[in-house]
């Protein structure tokens, strides 16, 4: 039996919004330690990894490890039926091919029950090594979203350059070019408004902006975002999910032939 009750159901709605444009089908892995998911986009250029720890749920029970194959479009449709203030409970029997979703309004006067068919998925899982990065940049998530949106009007690629002076995002296209530079700003009143840069060596990498724009669907989950980069390896874009977990997006760079 698997059962997970989340009082702040809006978190699950936001997580789903952050995943659905990148991933069409994914295996949600349920273990006693929590829920996790790893999936690549259709072109295998990016990968998303979600962790929601068991202790972040008000109630969590998982007697046997389960891999729930979920069509993300269906999951989105059903989660849209939940109100933002609803408590969401997920339930599945060990051998069932269905996931039950229950939405309770805050005062308990309305309870909605949905059932979603699960799929048999044979997903390739990649081992993500724990590694140190040459640069880690923490910045307000809305600023990152804005930069990606703005520069995507200029060109298809963004060059991210991180030095001790700051981080620079630049794009070039037929109509011209654009550059946005963010400098370290430790004086901001709110922690989410701070820009912090930790660097051991400078990094410059080129990425397809369309993927970064898809990652920014997670903006509403967290006030800040962390970008981790080393030369010639995938960029990591991480959003915290309150104090219960994270969404990490990995994006393969474009590298000169």
């Amino acid at each position: 039996m698997f059962e997970a009750r989340l009082v702040q159901g809006s978190l699950l709605k936001k997580v789903q919004e952050a995943l659905k444009d990148i991933v069409q089908e994914a295996s949600w892995d349920c273990t006693s330690s929590g829920l996790s998911l790893q999936a690549m986009d259709g072109s295998h250029v990016s990968l998303v990894q979600l962790t929601l720890r068991a202790d972040g749920f008000e109630k969590y029970r998982c007697d046997r490890n389960l891999a729930m194959g979920i069509n993300m479009g269906s999951m989105s449709k059903i989660l849209k039926c939940a109100g933002n203030d609803d408590v969401i409970t997920l339930k599945a029997e060990d051998t069932s091919d269905r996931l039950e979703l229950m939405f309770e309004s805050p005062k308990g006067e309305k309870i909605s029950n949905y059932e979603m068919k699960l799929m048999d998925l044979d997903c390739e899982q990649l081992g993500i090594p724990d590694q140190e990065y040459s640069c880690s940049i923490k910045m307000p998530s809305h600023e990152f979203a804005r930069i990606c949106r703005d520069l995507s009007q200029i060109g298809e690629c963004v060059v991210i350059t991180c030095t001790k002076d700051g981080v620079q995002f630049s794009a070039k296209g037929d109509m011209g070019s654009g550059t946005v530079k963010m400098s370290q700003n430790l004086g901001a009143e709110k922690e989410d408004d701070q820009v912090t840069i930790e660097m051991t060596e400078p990094v410059q990498l080129t990425f397809a902006i369309k993927y970064l724009n898809m990652f920014t669907k997670a903006t509403s989950l967290s006030g800040s975002v962390c970008l981790s980069m080393s030369n010639d390896v995938p960029l990591v874009v991480e959003y915290k999910v309150e104090d219960m977990g994270h969404i990490k997006y990995f994006l393969a760079p474009k590298i000169e032939d």
Partner: peptide, 14 residues
């Protein structure tokens, strides 16, 4: 010309 790498070329299959 920059070539788009695949993410799977950086991580090993489990």
């Amino acid at each position: 010309m920059n070539k788009q790498k695949k993410i799977s070329s950086f991580f090993e299959t489990k």
